[in-house]
Amino acid sequence: MLTFAVFQLVTALVGGTVGTAPLAYVFFNSMDPVGVELPKQPSRGTALTVRLKADGGLLVEGVPTPEEGLAATLAAKADGVSPGEVRILLSGEPGVGYEAVARVMGELSEAGYDKVGLVTSEGDE
Score class of each variant (00 low, 15 high):
R103Y: 10
L52A: 03
R103Q: 12
L74N: 06
D124S: 15
P39T: 05
A47K: 02
Q8C: 11
P39W: 01
A24V: 07
V60W: 00
G106S: 14
A24L: 15
V6I: 05
L89Y: 09
V36L: 09
K40W: 06
F7A: 06
T49H: 12
A75L: 06
P83K: 00
G97Q: 11
M1W: 10
V104H: 09
T3S: 03
I88D: 07
S109W: 11
A21V: 14
G92I: 02
D55R: 06
D55Q: 00
G95V: 03
A78F: 04
L48G: 01
V34R: 03
Q41T: 14
S109P: 09
E110D: 14
P42E: 15
V60R: 06
E99I: 03
M105S: 12
L2H: 10
R87Y: 08
A21Q: 15
G123N: 10
L108Q: 11
E125I: 08
L38D: 15
P33F: 01
E107K: 15
M31Q: 12
L9P: 02
V119G: 09
G56K: 00
V34L: 01
E110F: 12
M105L: 13
R103V: 12
G117S: 13
A102M: 13
L48T: 03
Y98L: 12
L2R: 08
V101K: 07
G19A: 15
G123V: 15
N29K: 02
V101W: 12
R44G: 10
A21K: 14
T11Q: 11
T49E: 15
F28A: 11
A47L: 12
L108S: 07
